[in-house]
Amino acid sequence: MDDAKIIGSIAASAAGSVGAGSITVATVTSSAPGLLGVIGLTTTTTVALPVAGIVAGAGLAAYGAIKVIKWLND
Rank of each mutant, 00 (worst) to 15 (best):
M1I: 05
M1Y: 07
M1K: 10
D2I: 04
D2T: 09
D2R: 12
D3N: 12
D3R: 14
D3T: 13
A4E: 12
A4Y: 07
A4M: 08
K5S: 15
K5V: 15
G8V: 03
S9Q: 15
S9H: 12
I10W: 04
A11Y: 10
A11L: 13
A11T: 11
S13V: 03
A14Q: 02
A14M: 02
A14I: 01
A15K: 13
A15F: 05
G16M: 07
S17N: 14
V18F: 06
V18I: 13
G19L: 07
G19C: 03
A20D: 11
A20Y: 06
G21I: 01
S22P: 00
I23L: 11
I23Q: 11
I23S: 06
T24A: 07
T24H: 02
A26I: 01
T27K: 10
T27V: 12
T27Y: 01
T27C: 03
T27Q: 09
V28W: 01
T29Y: 01
S30Q: 14
S30A: 15
S30C: 05
S31A: 14
S31Y: 09
A32Q: 11
G34A: 03
G34T: 05
G34E: 03
L35C: 07
L35N: 10
L35G: 05
L35K: 12
L35F: 14
G37Y: 00
G37K: 02
V38I: 12
I39N: 02
L41E: 13
L41I: 10
T42L: 04
T43M: 09
T44L: 01
T46W: 00
T46F: 00
V47K: 07
V47Q: 10
P50W: 00
P50G: 04
V51I: 08
V51E: 00
V51W: 00
V51L: 05
G53C: 01
G53R: 03
G53D: 10
I54L: 10
I54S: 02
A56W: 09
A56G: 07
G57T: 05
G57P: 02
A58V: 13
A58K: 10
A58H: 10
A58N: 14
A58E: 12
G59Q: 03
L60A: 08
A62K: 07
A62G: 13
Y63S: 05
Y63A: 09
Y63T: 04
G64L: 11
A65I: 04
I66L: 14
K67D: 09
K67F: 03
V68H: 12
I69A: 14
I69R: 12
K70R: 14
L72R: 06
D74I: 07
D74F: 08
D74A: 13
